[in-house]
Design a protein around this nucleic acid. Structure first.
Length: 118
RNA sequence: CCAGGGGGCCGGGCAGCCGCGUCGCUUAUGCGCCGAGGAAAGUCCGGGCUCCACGAAGCAAGGGUGGCGGGUAACCCCCGCCGGGCGGGUCUGCUUGCAGGCGAAGCCCAGGGAAAGUGCCACAGAGAGUAUACCGCCGAUGGCCCCGGAUCAGGUCCGGGGCACAGGCAAGGCUGAAAGGGUGCGGUAAGAGCGCACCGGGGCGUUGGUAACAAGGUCCGCAUGGCAAACCCCACCCGGAGCAAGACCGAAUAGGGGUGUCGCGCCGCAAGGCAGGCCGGCUUCGGCCGAGGCACCCGGGUUGGUUGCUUGAGCGCUGGGGCAACCCAGGGCCUAGAUGAAUGGCUGCCCCUGCGGCGCGGGUCCUUCACGGAUACCACCCGCAGGACAGAACCCGGCUUACAGGCCCCCUGGCACU
């Protein structure tokens, strides 16, 4: 479990895979094992909605990380609209695909450089 | 049974598998216990708790409350009662569709003071608070004109008619949320509490009630409309900030505190006094400080961890008091404590609602001796979909707001039956 703000900021510079319902960030952490963190902003909803989304994400990661997770990487899930209504099994598949893409190195460009290139 | 109205409660159940958090026991792996709400919400009131501030008295300022009595730790909360408005209906009056009185259960009321003062009352309307006079009514009295009569005539007097000049009136019309008591009869030139009856209102004392207040008596024809969630007046109450409060633990640097010493606006050898500053906004009394440098000692902002942190105005049971809110006594129970923030995911059965299907059963209809057929009805079966509002963050008491669906109780009036 990630708790430090600096870890979350660092994850922003890793690979980024967006799916309906969530965004996955993956970054090598230098031999500290598989770790994970969850970010749900106020933009998504009130406390009830946010906490529920976090619980669902935690369940997703618990099932997926041991088998499909990237060793010695930090995994961060960012909540998006639809993260509550979307079918749980479907999101589980989508997380698997996202992890597979990340393992192949096929992520989007890290944030911060996009849109400012020119 | 019909009509009207009020209140309380629940808010999915059972089981399996995989997980999460605290705690306990085991230990390098597990096991066991417990684990959201009636609103955990809005953060609107009231408290507990914690720290800070606070020398005393008075004044001022600001905020809050506002019928009476009770409950409570306290309240802008709750209960009971009172008053006003609404209310099924019922009664009275007459101009017969209007006015007024009384009024079940129940609902609503920021319900002190409007003869302390200031202010406001838009639009409409003649007139909005020292009422008003547009239309209208009258024109008795006075004036002018005409006719008749009396007198010789001017003139005067008597009778009749007209004008609407002076003047009288405020009933009716109109506007409005509101038009300066209401209805009726009498009265009058027309009218008016001008007089009377009833209703309403005010003063005084009487009786009942702890009180708010009520009842009846007597006097007064009636003099003072609304707004105080406008200023204001009256009575009572009120320090500030919040668990990111606060406490503890631990290393380095700036600043902080204490002691000693040197030194210090004016007077003085000194003690001290004065000027000056501070002590919640002001006053009086009172208290404190009264430059700074150096040395030594003490202690530690931020970040992290621990604590505060769940036994409490607690929950339910029995008995008692009280119309009730609530209180008292006895014995019993322990019921979430997270901090990137635990209480989740999947499945089966049952429950409720909706849609669809098919067969059997029942009902209804068609036809018939029968067989049979139809069905937008009911129950069963199968399938699918859905099951609200919403997530503790120091803790209580309230208020307000949100909520699929369901259950229960009570009150008033009417009808029917026993």
């Amino acid at each position: 479990m990630l708790t430090r703000r600096s870890d979350f900021l660092a994850a922003n510079h890793g690979l980024r895979v967006a799916r309906p319902g969530f965004v996955l960030l993956v970054r090598a952490n230098g031999g500290q094992g598989k770790r994970y963190g969850i970010t749900v902003t106020k933009k998504v909803g009130n406390a009830v909605v946010r906490n529920r989304m976090k619980r669902r994400f935690r369940e997703l990661l618990r099932a997926a990380l041991p088998l499909e997770g990237l060793p010695d990487h930090d995994h961060v899930l960012i909540g998006r609209d639809g993260g509550i209504e979307r079918d749980f099994a479907r999101m589980r598949d989508e997380l698997g695909i996202a992890l597979a893409r990340a393992a192949e190195g096929k992520g989007d460009a890290p944030r911060g450089q996009r849109g400012r290139r020119r």
